[in-house]
Design a protein around this nucleic acid. Sequence first.
RNA 1: GCCGCUGUGGCGGAAUUGGCAGACGCGCUGGACUCAAAAUCCAGUUCCUUCACGGGAGUGUGGGUUCGACCCCCACCGGCGGCACCA
Length: 825
Amino acid sequence: MGFFIFNNKTHNIFRKEDNNMAYEHTAIENKWQKYWQDNKTFKAILDTSKPKYYALDMFPYPSGQGLHVGHPEGYTATDAVSRMHRMQGFNVLHPMGWDAFGLPAEQYALKTGNNPKDFTNKNIQVFKKQIQSLGFSYDWDREVNTTDPKFYKWTQWIFEQLYKKGLAYEDKIMVNWAPDFMGGTVVANEEVIDGKTERGGYPVYRKPMRQWVLKITEYADRLVDDLDDLDWPESIKEQQRNWVGRSTGASVFFNVDGHEDAKVEVFTTRPDTLFGAAYIVLAPEHELVEQITIADQADSIKKYQDEVSRRSDLERTDLNKDKSGVFTGAYGINPVNGEKLPIWIGDYVLASYGTGAIMAVPAHDERDWEFAKKFGLNIKPVIEGGNVEEAPYIGDGAHINSDFLDGEQKAEAISEMIVWLEEHQAGEKKVNYRLRDWIFSRQRYWGEPIPVIHWEDGETTLVPENELPLQLPDTNDLEPSGTGESPLANIDDWVNVVDENGRKGKRETNTMPQWAGSSWYWLRYTDPDNDMELASQEALKYWSPVDLYVGGAEHAVLHLLYARFWHKVLYDLGVVPTKEPFQKLVNQGMILGENHEKMSKSKGNVVNPDDIVNQYGADTLRLYEMFMGPLEESVPWGEKGLHGSYKWIQRIWRLMVDEDGKLRDEVTSDNDGKLDKIYNQTVKKVTDDFDRMHFNTGISQLMVFVNEAYKADKLPVEYMQGLVKMISPIMPHVSEELWSFFKISDTIAYQTWPTFDESKLVEDEVEMVIQINGKVKGHLKVSKDLGKEEIKKLALANEKVQETIDGKDIRKLIVIPGKIVNIVI
RNA sequence: GCCGCUGUGGCGGAAUUGGCAGACGCGCUGGACUCAAAAUCCAGUUCCUUCACGGGAGUGUGGGUUCGACCCCCACCGGCGGCACCA
């Protein structure tokens, strides 16, 4: 215990009367937030002489609920990375904005007769204030807002480019029609859960409707292949691959017996099992059904089709695993052996995937096997192994009953069959995708208007580029159209247009989905005020790509896939310089309630960040969220842990500041060397851990250093400055305040990140472990350069070792210099 | 059902290349300071056993590879997330 502790004790006596100089989080945080704002400390300026770093958060939807403690977790992580990079000499772009189109604002407006714009702007103000109270180093001059016409001008511009490239088209397609939802609207597949709308839980029906669709399928291969070069979590890449669902196989053509003009095309990933095909199944909606059905079966087929069309998706999949189907009476000819195969229809074959028709190989496919068992169809094995009467055999094996494929294994048989099919014009190699084109229109007011005009003569044109943005009309009187169109259909002034020749037309009343703005917003941050381009080439070249993108895993597929798609289209147009938008992606985990359950109002376990900031301060909240566990994991909130973080900040404060509010006398330029090793170790570990976003372990190393510093008599000023710098990415306010004691610079934000001296880390003596049969029996302090033989001798001479060996034979002796000796007896 | 992740003290979590399991924090226990409490500082804290010295067990379970396994391999069990008749 050094005199420093003693010193502290004596001062404690006076603390009761005078604790003015204690850590005052509110005053400090207000002071520095104002300083940063007034001085535009974090303004990012394009400067090609410096290396850039682009750290991005997924921008939030500014809901009326305000900020949740989950938000600051990811934000603090990117903020810490940004602050550290600034200190390491990078030119950092760290922006924030608002994904502000969306359903709640429109619902609110419909209910209350207000304008969604005002409501949204109010929510943004609340969100912004809350976010600013946490001290993030955003460049607020680059704030974007998807609902701002200056922003959505370019969303519309991108739509027009898609249209010109043939990637946006209108189609009458089956959509998810939710008549009870907001006066009737269409929702995307991904917004339907168990036959109900994701929000509100209204029933959803299939209905054909005119929709705008984006041809994302054209990019399917690139969306899969380009994942390989990205530094993303494997789970997210896997989800995207599954979503695109690329599968390689073959198309096989079956002629229909007695119908010269009819041909059934099936898709299969197992063309090698063609000799085992027992029957063919068409989706009930398949276009050939009517043509080939024989008169006797027509009634039952019709009845079945009606039945199926009334079934919801829920009944077709989840609830009904029982196979159903009806025989058409027609037969297909197996091209490889001329066998006649009965053609059935059944709803286990989906019209939307592949060709809507399959060849059934019941011996080697579970679904086909169930169907065949139920309807007593032939089950013929073509691969050895298993008993196909008992269960389908899915594994690999030698082919049998397969003519020229007999004896071959799966992979070989597949390629040989494809060669045969192509030679005989009976089929071809084929790649299929699960991914469907992206339904891009919504029947809503509060979204970007689709810049299209439908003229009375049937022509469809884009709104000319120089007339963009096509603004949403202001209105306080939103009415559901009731027809399935958006409320815009009621606003005659806006909908009806006349061109210079007197031709009449109507504007497209569909608007874009919420995904539109978020599919390109990160580009706008690079040059947010540009009226001529979505961003200048110079800015895009300098700042692209996003180096670090942090957000929740709930956007694993939709947002991140749509964003990649748009980015690739813009890349093809020469607008952006990189193939992919986000080089590194990190998903922060969820913050759970204290009861380990997801935070929700109904469970009463929601923590409001405002309360934490008031009681403990933003630095404590930031520290706690970074210390509570690995960023990627879901971790439960704990009030006790939060309090511990608060105490640690005060402990640092007291380490350096005395009761008179001055730097302690122990902080000195006189270095007695006692903290050399731990300090250099700390710089090394913290730099490394923060770099890898392992904040919890980096912070723990800083705690170790502080604990050591408390035991030291002298606190070298250089080390104290280094400490303040190292905590500044996590706790920026208190760091600025402590930094100001050194009177070096006004702000710590651009001070140089500490470096470590490697020579201070190596010790002349190392402690080695002596094990006997893998169990630790003793330790050995030796010179780090000592040779194996000497170590061996010393180890064997150890008293404890002698005792344990007790004259037994040594069977083996392993020496790893500097680490371990293991004696096997 | 399939795919991915995950399982370590009372709790959150460490262990970077296969080399002393449990860093750091919370909680708890004890001590110092105080009339007292709070705060602070110091020390201890995986479990079982022992007054103690010591001994034994131990990273979801069972096996394997290795001088040595939280770490690698095989099988199984539990938790979380995703997909789900995708041919």
